[in-house]
Design a binder for these strands. Structure first.
Length: 498
RNA sequence: GGCGACGUAGCCAAGUGGUUAAGGCGGAGGUCUGCAAAACCUCUAUUCACCGGUUCGAAUCCGGUCGUCGCCUCCA
């Protein structure tokens, strides 16, 4: 398996240090809902996890939660909440979003606030070694002490024009120096430290946590490309200076950015679609297909059109995962060997996680399975179905039926007198009952099912008498109410999504 | 200004030196159906932003032009 390492700018053969792959992925700052950009990153690293597991690796996965920083403090103040109150609320919502997207939970979710002791230990160590200095209650990292600073982002200190944000701090020795520990300002949460009351800088928590939970050298460190500089660059400087051991990270993996309307999706720009908003319109599988259908290092543009396309693709895969009844009589045709699909899948994934090709394999298998279902030889494609489910699982697709309610009309079970009684003027009443029932959240599914079965029973009786116009009126009405009506050789089936 | 990525069919998107340029969505036709729906089948880029060059051979390598985006500041 090869992965593209940001550090070397090359695809490298992935060889973990030991029996257990260690992976650290940068987490979120919980002060607002996570958006599709976050979804992309965490869905991708979820697939990395699942694929490594599929390949027989054990894995330890740690993801931090930054629960103290400027934006959190500002938001908490604005909302009149305490910082822990705010961050706990949004951490919970983040967990719910990830669960909805079928993202596996990490082994540890350390919080910055919970790791102050380790952060202070690392900070003190960096001062002792001369890599950092305390001034005015703050501690800064001395960037010029690190000769290879810039190796991840491939830029030199000289090339980094200090911008406004980097200047404007008189107490730093050098404009590029960054804070490990920030002296407390009035009315901000703060902790005791050897340098007085204060709180951690942005980058130090990841160095401290990865050191504490995963050791001095970790296999994979992941995050969005926007974290390469300064965040990950600074993590390297801190960690390698503190431990004296290189490399801090063996494989740096970075995903591309999600774009919305020709711009990066981000909180600060305010152009974003939250995961929650997307899930109101699209299934988790559709969102995962949307993300995985392009390569992880490329930018990904969010649009309704592309998500719609992903949803329709998901529908077809769901059909293969939950095959219906046969439609035709057909001959069993010569089937390609199911093992070839595993090979194609592994070849694709081994080449720097080529999920678009992996999804193509899934669609090819879906065609085989759906054809077999149509022609009534599903029993001949057991191996293909196993392969299909297996690959879908590695991509984290559930492919469960999406209908909330469904039914099958059985004229034997419906009282013929009911049908006869309903065929006349009562039909309109029945249809309006269904309309009301659909809008009423308290209405039980059984009632709706009874109504719809009766309406479609009436329709079937009309169809038997070739009164197609009246029959179609009933179907059209139900369709407009969100029902899908399908006449199959086994009778009329119906379902409704939401 | 510095660093980097990208430009492939109506849309999304693989492919990065050599058989017919993956796959999805959409569209057209067909099978099935009373008609539909779903599923299936067939078709849908002689061509890979543009211009030059290297090569027996390039979407793939090199140079230039145009265009889009990211990082250099909080950010997945």
């Amino acid at each position: 398996m090869k992965v593209y390492n940001t550090l070397s700018r090359k695809k490298e053969e992935f060889v973990p240090q030991g029996d257990e792959v260690t992976m650290y992925v940068c987490g979120v700052n919980p002060y607002s809902d996570a958006h599709i950009g976050h979804a992309m990153s965490y869905i991708f690293f979820d697939v990395v996890r699942r694929y490594l597991h599929f390949r027989g690796h054990r894995l330890r996965h740690v993801q931090n939660i930054t629960d103290i920083e400027d934006n959190i403090i500002a938001t908490a103040n604005r909302l009149g909440k305490s910082v822990p109150e705010l961050t706990q609320e949004y951490t919970k919502r983040y967990d719910e979003d990830m669960a909805a997207l079928n993202v596996l939970r990490a082994d540890e979710y350390p919080r910055a606030m919970g790791e102050i002791e380790k952060i202070i230990e690392v900070t003190r160590g960096l001062i002792d070694k001369g890599f950092a200095y305390a001034v005015g209650g703050s501690v800064y990292f001395r960037v010029r002490k690190v000769p290879d600073y810039g190796k991840l982002s491939h830029r030199t200190l000289e090339a980094m024009e200090p911008s406004e944000g980097a200047i404007g701090n008189e107490e730093k020795e050098d404009a590029m120096d960054f804070a490990l520990w920030k002296a407390a300002k009035p009315d901000e949460p703060s902790w005791d430290s050897p340098w007085g009351q204060g709180r951690p800088g942005w980058h130090i928590e990841c160095s401290a946590m990865s050191l504490k939970y995963l050791g001095e050298t970790i296999d994979i460190h992941g995050g969005g490309q926007d974290l390469i500089f300064p965040h990950h660059e600074n993590e390297i400087a801190q960690s390698e200076s503190f431990t004296g051991k290189k490399p801090f990270v063996r494989y740096w993996l970075h995903n591309g950015m999600v774009q919305l309307r020709q711009q990066k999706m981000s909180k600060s720009l305010g152009n974003l679609i939250t995961i929650r908003e997307a899930l109101e319109k699209y299934s988790p599988d559709a969102i995962r297909i949307f993300v995985l259908n392009s390569h992880y290092r490329s930018p990904l543009t969010y649009s309704e059109e592309v998500l719609e396309a992903a949803e329709r693709g998901a529908d077809r895969l769901r059909q293969a995962a939950n095959p219906g009844r046969p439609s035709f009589k057909g001959e069993v045709e010569e089937l390609p060997d199911a093992r070839a699909y595993y090979e194609r899948f592994e070849t694709a994934m081994d080449d720097d996680l080529n999920t678009p090709q992996a999804i193509a394999v899934l669609f090819d298998l879906a065609s085989i399975i759906n054809r077999a279902a149509n022609l009534d030889y599903l029993d001949k494609v057991d191996q293909h179905r196993i392969t299909f489910r297996d690959i879908a699982g590695v991509l984290g697709l559930k492919l469960e039926p999406t209908d909330v309610i469904s039914g099958q009309v059985d004229l034997e079970e419906i009282d013929s007198e009911d049908i006869a009684a309903t065929r006349g003027e009562k039909l309109d009443l029945l249809l309006s009952n269904i309309e009301n029932a659909v809008k009423d959240p308290d209405m039980g599914i059984d009632s709706i099912r009874g109504y719809v079965n009766l309406a479609l029973g009436v329709r079937d009786s009309l169809r038997k008498e070739r009164q197609y116009q009246r029959a179609d009126e009933i179907r059209d009405k139900l369709t407009s109410l969100g029902f899908t009506v399908e006449d199959t050789p086994q009778g009329t089936e119906w379902k409704r999504k939401r």
